[in-house]
Design a protein around this nucleic acid. Structure first.
Lengths: 117, 117
DNA sequence: TGTCTGTTTCGACGGACGTCGAGTCAGGCG
DNA sequence: CGCCTGACTCGACGTCCGTCGAAACAGACA
């Protein structure tokens, strides 16, 4: 279950949208991360995972927080995983998710604009 | 053409994903902004607009930068507009787009995570 | 007024997405 | 081993999205 397909995000590229145009190849990877966050359910899942006290949270705590079936939550979690935003680890019966801070920081940096002069 | 439908983004809410769970109503608005950035073409458009020297850029400079038809670019610009990410203004024959820094800052703040301890 | 250029709207097509129910896999426990 | 529970996969359905060509709209200019 370890995260096989975390897309390679070139951290050296694209410190900010406002600095210069994002190259097409970088745009593809970065857009896929934004797309993963572009659903209300996934954004809340991401938030619940990132704000978990212990740094991780069980799927069994995520599922009942939504009015959706288990398979649907599982599908959204897979989307977050494939976008490289979270990591999953099975421990016994339960599966725990945790955020990947590096990519979150990169996305934040990309959106950072200089404060109004 | 002024931006009629800039969604109300409650800036008081949700300083960071990692702090507490994003409420459902906020998630809907914020997710729509991320969704707008979740397409490679729109992300590049956003970047070109935000990094424009004069703070604004003409559609006539955006269109030839992609291998897409005019209507398609126009459609993507409308999506960015409706997400509240950019503003458009017609001056004579040409239409100029500029970024809205406030919402970009809010999205950046949402994704900001504390640096590794 | 007529025409030309730049931009947007409209309608359509194909593919991707969100959701579900049913079934499957993994691990714990009697 | 057999059964139960938690999580995931699979297949299907309806909807939304990205793209295009054709048409409409807005200004500039002769």
């Amino acid at each position: 279950m370890s995260n096989q397909a975390a897309p390679a995000v070139d951290a050296s590229c694209c410190p900010s949208l406002t600095e210069r145009r994002v190259p097409a190849e970088a745009a593809a990877v970065l857009a896929s991360a934004f797309k993963a966050l572009g659903d209300p359910v996934r954004l809340q899942l991401m938030s619940m995972i990132a704000s978990a006290e212990s740094g991780e949270i069980c799927v069994c705590d995520l599922t009942p927080a939504f009015d959706l079936t288990g398979p649907t939550i599982s599908h959204h979690l897979r989307t977050l995983r494939e976008a490289g935003l979270v990591d999953a680890e099975r421990r016994g019966t339960w599966v725990y998710y945790r955020a990947r801070p590096a990519i979150l920081r990169q996305l934040a940096a990309l959106l950072t604009v200089a404060p109004a002069a």
